[in-house]
Design a protein around this nucleic acid. Structure first.
Length: 575
DNA sequence: GCCGTTTTCGGCCCGACTGTTTTCAGTCG
């Protein structure tokens, strides 16, 4: 049985939840959580390494015991500890931990006293009024829990980055415009560039914190105020997203921004480092004994523990602190590094704008070139181009290039990769193009071996340049294809072709982990908008964020190269 | 359960808010 690292992570996460409900040593619980977290973002497949007898590198936080459990899970798909915990506690109990206001203690209490072991049963118990009778609970708590359970049962909890960006921008503008003279920044997973966010965290400093918190609670989009104190408040916006605001004094702003940017794992690691240096870090600053020695800016916080500033996207405790200590932090790609966009549609397939409109919009955003890559004909639903249509578009592009200055259109196609790995356009036409972007839009449910073979074969075509949205996932809608991405990335290296980081907020594909792996393998990526209208160039920032999370530097980004350098690379890929 | 500039035992990040408590436990971030 194939065991992904994420499967092992899920088992460890379940064990952590169950142990916590059983009131186990919290540090033991943390060990499982840390391991789960690590495995979740560790790309090389451990089961394969173990089965092939390859040496497994030392993974921080995974000692003899957890490594033994990893072997057990790789061999059997489960481990004895999980099976034992499942016998002791109903698995449904875990769901209760996801309800705001319910932690391990209350989950245990609910189970032991009321026999509750699922969200549905919890909702029933609240309606019957029995939850209010528990120690530490009352009717108000019961009401809140019922509301939270009903919310949770009715909708998913994570929000796309496009909506989150819009809401965050609006709210921050509102707070900055209030008369509280506030400095406001968005922190949290949003600032770290996560592909989705569970909530928004705002950090502010103001001479009038009470006025700022009042302005926050009075924001037009607020549906419900959950909590409101003198230094922090929480609301739920009408869209269902929770927003937490924390207000600190200006001398603490950097420390608070760092603290609430997280990740939690990064913070714990940084605090550990501080403690070993005899310092204490909290959201108010860095303290030596009672004296605050840093905190006004983030850079001062890092400096106090002997580190350079670390970009938020790296703060996942995936080695960034060690890299900072060794002065080996990566130079991360920025939006301004992009010289072009290699995946752009027009009205010739399913885009909304003309060649000229797309070209001018790209130029306005400071790009030097874009590749026109409309769909090919087998994607009938998108009105894809057949051979004649593509030939006409090639002529149109030549004509427009002769006319335009300061922006160059490259000739390309988003070519359907058919089930047998071939393309749906003749080779002589593909050879006239500057690049061929291969993509899978059909038969997405092939078994892994066939799907992988299909894509590897397409990459072997001499005209193949770039694999579009490699995993095929749609966030919150569609899982990635069954695909051996490790082989795809290795094959791209051997073949000398490229992989896309698709910037559409619903795709973000490659994701951060595979960006990291591509970087390790030396495979260049193209950060593309996949624009279907002139507005979509704005999405490039989302792709940039994922690439940065994957430690990608401008050197590893195909479209951060000048047009001249890009043309050389495209020709080389053609072999 | 992990780990070592406090090194094989004894630590493990830290503070705010809520609700129900009559001094604080539980939860959250």
């Amino acid at each position: 049985m194939l065991v992904h690292n994420s499967d092992i992570a899920e088992i460890f996460s379940e064990i952590a939840d169950m142990l916590e409900i059983q009131d186990a040593n919290p540090f033991r619980v943390r060990a499982y959580r840390n391991a789960a977290r690590l495995l979740q973002s560790y790309a090389p497949n451990l089961q394969t390494m173990l089965q092939q007898g390859q040496p497994v590198p030392h993974l921080p936080g995974i000692g003899t015991d957890l490594m033994g459990k990893i072997r057990e899970i790789a061999d059997h798909g489960t481990c004895a500890l999980r099976d034992q915990l499942r016998r002791e506690l109903p698995p449904g109990l875990r769901q209760l931990l996801a309800v705001p206001g319910i932690g391990p203690r209350r989950a245990k209490l609910l189970h032991e006293v009321l026999g509750v072991d699922s969200l549905e049963q919890l909702a029933d118990a609240c309606r019957e009024g029995t939850v209010a009778g528990l120690r530490g609970m009352g009717t108000r708590g019961q009401q809140r829990i019922l509301q939270a359970v009903e919310d949770r049962l009715s909708k998913s909890r994570r929000f796309g980055i496009a909506l989150a960006t819009e809401l965050a921008d609006t709210l921050v503008r509102h707070l900055r415009a209030s008369d509280a003279q506030a400095k406001v920044e968005v922190a949290g997973s949003f600032r770290r560039g996560r592909e989705t966010v569970g909530d928004l965290d705002l950090v502010a400093s103001s001479s009038r914190p009470t006025a700022l918190i009042a302005a926050f609670a009075a924001f037009d989009g607020v549906g419900q105020v959950l909590a409101k104190g003198s230094t922090r408040a929480s609301v739920v916006l009408r869209q269902g997203i929770q927003v937490d605001l924390r207000v600190v004094a200006p001398v603490s702003f950097g420390a608070a921004l760092h603290y609430f940017t997280g990740s939690r794992e990064h913070n714990i690691a940084l605090r550990g480092l501080a403690r070993r240096n005899g310092l204490k870090i909290n959201e108010y600053g860095v303290f030596s004994a009672e004296e605050r020695i840093a905190g006004e800016t983030e850079a001062s916080v890092f400096k106090a523990v002997g580190l350079p500033w670390i970009a938020p996207e790296l703060r996942e405790n995936r080695g960034e602190i060690e890299a900072a200590q060794q002065e080996q932090l990566p130079d991360l790609v920025q939006l301004s590094d992009l010289k072009g966009d290699l995946h752009v549609h027009t009205r010739s397939s399913d885009g909304r704008n003309s060649l000229r409109e797309m070209a001018l919009a790209a130029q306005q955003r400071g790009l030097d070139y874009i590749a026109i890559t409309d769909h090919s004909s087998s994607l009938a639903v998108a009105g894809g181009l057949d051979a004649d249509g593509l030939a006409r578009q090639i002529d149109d592009i030549d004509a427009l290039n002769a006319e335009l200055h300061g922006i160059v259109l490259l000739k390309g196609i988003e070519a359907e990769i058919r089930v047998d790995g071939s393309f749906d356009l003749p080779d002589d036409l593909l050879r006239r193009l500057d690049l061929v972007v291969g993509a899978v839009h059909s038969k997405m449910d092939l078994p892994s071996e066939r799907q992988t073979a299909r894509i590897l074969k397409a990459m072997d075509h001499p005209c193949f340049t770039l694999l579009a949205h490699p995993s095929g996932r749609l966030l919150g809608e569609r899982e990635p294809y069954a695909l051996d991405m490790n082989r795809v990335i290795r094959h791209a290296r051997e073949r000398g072709c490229f992989l896309e980081v698709n910037s559409q907020p619903s795709r973000l594909d490659l994701n951060d982990q595979y960006c990291m792996q591509a970087r390790r393998e030396g495979v260049m990526v193209a950060i593309d908008s996949d624009a279907h209208s002139v507005l979509d160039f704005d999405n490039l920032r989302f792709g940039i964020a994922q690439a940065r999370r994957g430690w990608t530097g401008p050197d590893n980004v195909l479209n951060a190269r000048s047009l001249t350098a890009l043309r050389k690379l495209l020709l080389k890929a053609r072999g």
